[in-house]
Simulated scan of single mutants.
Amino acid sequence: MASYRGYMSPEYASEGLYSTKSDVFSFGVLVLEIVSGKRNRGFNNPDHELNLLGHAWTLFIEDRSSEFIDAAMGNTCNLSEVLRSINLGLLCVQRFPEDRPNMQFVVLMLSSEGALPQPKEPCFFTDRNMMEANSTSSTQPYITMLEAR
């Protein structure tokens, strides 16, 4: 499975389009890397071929997110806050930009204790499948379109 070049949003990696939510995607990857103690790029698990985002999602939907937490954190962390961070990270790495929160809402979610929305499946497809998914998505809020010279 593709790791989307580390922190790159899928819309940028597959089509070269930068959206207003690309920074949110990158932030979400970073949050998941910090919690897990692993990098998205080059992540591997002997049980599956998913990248870090797919691994986080699988554990989340199986209600096993505590297994995603870096063992080095041990008992030194507040488990509910770390689980909330995983949920937030998954909200930030959702497939389509319109499904991701904006950074203002991310900050609000970080500073509050209310229930977080349920994330949708994040982007952890092969490049071919991601390009197909992007071509069927609704209109996205792009601010620039980069083209090769």
Rank of each mutant, 00 (worst) to 15 (best):
G37F: 07
L88H: 00
E98H: 14
C77H: 13
L79N: 02
R64W: 04
T126R: 09
T144Q: 14
V24D: 02
T144I: 14
P119F: 01
F43H: 04
E132T: 12
T139K: 13
E49G: 12
N102R: 06
G54T: 04
F124D: 13
G54M: 03
V82I: 15
W57K: 08
M109A: 04
I61M: 08
D99R: 04
K21I: 00
E81R: 14
W57L: 10
R84Q: 10
V93S: 02
T136A: 13
S26E: 07
L30A: 10
I34W: 00
L90M: 05
R5I: 04
T126G: 14
R100T: 05
P122H: 02
C92E: 01
E15S: 10
S22E: 07
N129S: 10
E132Y: 08
V31I: 15
C92D: 00
H48G: 05
A56Q: 04
V31Q: 03
L116M: 12
T136H: 14
S22F: 05
P122K: 00
Q140F: 11
V107R: 09
G28M: 01
M145E: 14
N75C: 02
M8N: 07
A148Y: 09
R128E: 15
S26C: 05
N87I: 08
L91K: 04
F96K: 03
N134L: 15
L110R: 09
T144E: 15
K120T: 09
